[in-house]
Amino acid sequence: MELLGFSLAALMGLSLGLLGGGGSILTVPILVYVLGFGAKESIAMGLAVVGVTSLVGAASHWRKGNVRFRAALLFALVAMAGTYGGARLSALLSGATQLLLFAAVMLVSAFFMFRNGRRDAASAPSPHKAPVPVMVLAALGVGGLTGLVGVGGGFLIVPALVLLVGLPMKQAVGTSLLVIALNSLVGFAGYLGHVEVPWGALGVFTAIAVAGILTGTWASHFVSQATLKTAFSGLLVVMGVFILVKNREALMSVGEVTPTSVGAAVTGTPRSSGGP
């Protein structure tokens, strides 16, 4: 299972390189259900992996002129405040609850990715700038989601940079990787101190993911983005439903949880969970 899990790290890197997002959507389920780490450990590790991997990808896109540093820093600075707050707030939630939220995010992102994959390039909205308060709220929302459930937010950041900041699509993908990197690494810092991090496994997983994103960035010139997004959305639906099924007991008990039952949900989710 370890060999499979570390092999899938390359798939995570590929998705970031090809699509500018989707890395953490794959990373957390791999860490939880293939490598057997706990939910909170996996969310923290996922943020570190996606942060480092995205930074490498951003450097590759920067060499091609597809990173707008001013837009990235302005968006990231606001988002990072939300990310750190979300990471701290996550201490109040059980691991099972975080995974349920994560599954919901997967299904929503699958819908938008499928819709964007089918949209004809000619009908895509032309870039324009939204009012500053709207951009600030969007950045805070993306950041809070990143910290709370461990998603880099690329599937939200790319359209936000196009529709709200006014960047062309290619620059939005490259710029999003820098935003994801800053956002994710701040989120990881928010978990330090209340989550034990297995640094050895984290290092190996990250190194393989970095190789994947370099390959994905190179391959992005030869693969249809529309086809990739449609296929990836199907994968997200399957994985989102899988996570909901694995945590169905926690899902059924939402609204009637107590501190004791929350603790039980956490222990039943990760490594010790052998049931369907």
Score class of each variant (00 low, 15 high):
232 F>S: 09
172 A>N: 07
114 F>M: 00
139 A>C: 03
216 G>F: 06
147 G>R: 02
103 A>R: 04
193 G>F: 01
266 V>Y: 13
131 P>L: 05
2 E>I: 11
45 M>F: 06
112 F>I: 11
207 A>C: 04
74 L>W: 14
120 D>T: 09
124 A>E: 15
98 Q>W: 01
62 W>P: 02
249 E>V: 13
274 G>F: 04
144 G>P: 08
174 G>K: 13
184 S>E: 03
38 G>H: 03
270 P>K: 06
133 P>H: 07
261 S>M: 08
54 S>F: 12
33 Y>K: 03
116 N>D: 12
34 V>Q: 07
130 A>M: 12
48 A>C: 06
14 L>M: 04
71 A>K: 10
100 L>R: 12
227 T>G: 01
16 L>R: 09
66 N>Q: 15
182 L>P: 00
221 H>C: 01
111 F>N: 05
146 T>S: 15
90 S>H: 09
14 L>V: 10
87 A>C: 07
13 G>V: 01
223 V>P: 06
158 V>G: 02
40 K>F: 00
217 T>G: 08
94 S>K: 12
275 G>E: 04
11 L>G: 06
263 G>F: 13
213 I>H: 11
66 N>H: 15
234 G>Q: 00
71 A>Y: 13
56 V>I: 15
191 Y>L: 02
203 G>F: 01
182 L>W: 01
261 S>E: 10
224 S>P: 02
39 A>G: 07
155 F>V: 14
265 A>N: 12
76 A>T: 10
208 I>D: 04
221 H>Y: 01
49 V>W: 01
131 P>Y: 05
138 A>C: 14
222 F>S: 08
176 S>P: 09
124 A>H: 12
157 I>T: 15
51 G>Y: 07
275 G>W: 11
45 M>V: 07
14 L>T: 05
174 G>R: 07
1 M>W: 07
36 G>R: 04
142 V>Q: 06
97 T>I: 12
141 G>K: 01
261 S>H: 13
17 G>V: 06
252 M>T: 13
171 Q>D: 10
229 K>Y: 07
89 L>P: 02
186 V>H: 03
23 G>T: 14
70 R>T: 14
56 V>L: 14
273 S>L: 00
32 V>S: 09
180 I>K: 10
24 S>F: 03
235 L>E: 06
67 V>Q: 14
159 P>R: 03
188 F>M: 08
21 G>A: 15
235 L>S: 08
62 W>T: 13
109 S>V: 11
146 T>V: 09
133 P>M: 11
234 G>P: 03
241 V>M: 06
38 G>V: 03
35 L>H: 10
38 G>F: 06
222 F>T: 11
88 R>A: 10
221 H>S: 13
246 K>M: 03
197 V>T: 10
212 G>R: 04
97 T>N: 11
119 R>G: 02
146 T>A: 15
251 L>E: 06
104 A>Y: 00
207 A>V: 08
35 L>Q: 13
128 H>N: 11
246 K>V: 00
198 P>E: 01
41 E>R: 05
263 G>A: 15
201 A>L: 01
43 I>S: 06
15 S>L: 14
71 A>I: 04
213 I>M: 14
95 G>H: 00
129 K>F: 06
41 E>N: 02
112 F>K: 15
59 A>C: 08
102 F>A: 05
201 A>D: 12
54 S>R: 08
158 V>N: 07
21 G>S: 14
4 L>H: 04
272 S>K: 00
11 L>S: 08
117 G>L: 01
108 V>S: 10
